[in-house]
Design a binder for these strands. Sequence first.
DNA 1: GAAAATATGTCAATAAGGCTGACATAAATT
DNA 2: AATTTATGTCAGCCTTATTGACATATTTTC
Lengths: 168, 168
Amino acid sequence: MSHKDAPPIKAPLTLKDGVDFAIIEHLFFAYRDFTSDPDAILAEYGFGRAHHRVLHFVNRRPGLTVAELLDVLRITKQSLARVLKQLIDDEYIVQVQGPRDRRQRELYPTQKGRDLALALALPQSRRIRAALEEAQLADSAVVERFLRAMVDPELRAQMDKLPNGRSQ
Amino acid sequence: MSHKDAPPIKAPLTLKDGVDFAIIEHLFFAYRDFTSDPDAILAEYGFGRAHHRVLHFVNRRPGLTVAELLDVLRITKQSLARVLKQLIDDEYIVQVQGPRDRRQRELYPTQKGRDLALALALPQSRRIRAALEEAQLADSAVVERFLRAMVDPELRAQMDKLPNGRSQ
DNA sequence: GAAAATATGTCAATAAGGCTGACATAAATT
DNA sequence: AATTTATGTCAGCCTTATTGACATATTTTC
């Protein structure tokens, strides 16, 4: 154990190195706890985070196609297939043949799917509201602007396709 | 396909349901892009996000023990073992026997480990600074307060153990 | 109308990163 | 001397992702 190896560095890496570690770490811890709320609920249903993401976007953009969903989630068709199949089999989501293009499958939530999506979003929303209050932020615009600016510019168009995005 | 199944719900889930979807989704997209920067670098080294987290905290709190690291990361000993072994074998981290308690293994970065940790943090820091500027936030205190408030109160003590936390 | 492109589904194999349970060792504590 | 603690390690399992290949239905193009 450390006989003729590279010597240990004892000084901590601090913001003197010109890097904003505070926000980096705050984001890590905040996101971890933010996702822990729905994770606990999903476990009861035998679902994981992947199911949550699919269910969320199908509820937020009912009728979106498989291709559009893949684009939003940035995963492969094969990764989506497994979780989507489960959600359809368990009747949280239904597929409807595309009206103009019958190759397409429009994805819609069922009432069951709508209810679960809302149940998953509720604790997250509560956490956000409590945090805004604790941080004494009257409205969420500042935080929202910052988070939006953290996203790659090319991908912001996708966010605008959601209700109450920039398009409304 | 949707013959006598549960009917599809066509209306999108919006903030009328009393849930702040904007921040929920902004956090999702922001965190995804935030982690994509180091992910690209890690792939060149054959490492993953798990290695990043270990390397980060060992650099931020040199000399922490295995038990302390498990506590911060909230993973099991077995999950840590695999990535830690690689980081030690590749000489990014060295172990030093604890001075008071010789059962403990204090973890320190090597120069190589320090350099990589900094290289991984740099693009993230750049992204944060650009976002603060774009969102016209003179200082990061507001965002930091919000993110801290998003963390479970019990876990905030852990954040304070890092340099430039509340303890400094 | 035939050919090509597109949207989706599915199969097989692989990898990363988690998990549980069990057990071993050394060192500290009781 | 017995117990507890800190760490390491083995074996097996799960979820979520990956790539590559191929099938089918449908639309678009020539």
